[in-house]
Amino acid sequence: MDISPAARHYVRRLLVEHPAIRSYINRDTHPLGMKEEYLERYIHLEHLTYPQLNQLEFIIELHQKIRINEPHQTHQLQRLEQKIFDLLGIELPIAPHSYNTIENSPSSCDWLIKPQNDPSRHEAATLSEYYHYFRKITEVATPHLDKMLVTNYWLLTRPRESWLAKIQVAQFYNPTFKPPDQLLAEREAATLQQWICDFIQHCCRILPSLPRLLLAANIPCQLLWALVG
């Protein structure tokens, strides 16, 4: 398995922007100069397993969405770049960027974090909003996994907190269910986000492409951030 041509192109663009790579290429007498094809020498995928290739594609797509929609989130973007380079086996220092040079087609991403450098922080959220996320994630996962398996994974990964007993997994399949519009405390929202993360990671044992499917379904980036590792 290989990554998509679009993902390879994006990696080459990240490489050509990195100061260390740019400096090296500028000194090189290779006739291709700064052409992106020359950067292929840095992209090695042979050592990656199938789940790692899926993770690489997911991180690339997540970086692209955040860069388009929230370019001021430089800390998150730099961390994603470092993870991409680590997976490729490239030793490069974290470099500052102005994240405005890559041209991409528009896409949407509900990046709900506050303007600090901590993606685990939460804006005020409601239980109704999280029911929507649970239903959407269930909707994406169920066609690829057995419904009973999806239900069991939700139950298996549910945090052991008493207040979560009122959240019925059966309602994740019911689009007409109207949960209370209860405002969540930051700790409660963090607990629900951890539940979602644990569920996705459990599903990834069978369906490694699930994070990418969720990203394509416009699940908020903040709910997927913990999957970066």
Rank of each mutant, 00 (worst) to 15 (best):
M1P: 02
M1A: 11
I3H: 03
R12P: 04
L14R: 11
R22G: 06
H30P: 02
P31Q: 08
G33R: 07
G33E: 03
M34V: 11
K35Y: 06
Y38C: 01
Y42C: 01
P51H: 02
L53S: 02
K65T: 09
I66V: 15
I66R: 15
H72R: 15
H72T: 14
T74Y: 05
R79A: 09
R79T: 12
R79P: 00
K83F: 01
K83R: 15
D86V: 12
D86F: 13
P96S: 11
I102K: 03
P106Y: 05
S108F: 08
C109K: 09
H122A: 01
E129F: 13
Y133T: 11
T138M: 08
E139T: 14
E139F: 11
V140N: 12
A141V: 07
P143H: 04
K147G: 07
L149E: 13
V150D: 02
V150Y: 02
V150M: 00
W154K: 05
L155R: 10
L155G: 04
L156R: 13
P159R: 05
P159N: 13
N174L: 08
F177Q: 06
D181M: 08
L184Y: 09
A185L: 15
A185S: 15
E186L: 12
R187M: 07
W195P: 04
W195T: 10
C197Q: 14
C204M: 15
R205H: 09
S209P: 00
L213R: 14
L215Y: 07
A216S: 11
A217N: 10
N218Q: 14
I219N: 04
W225H: 07
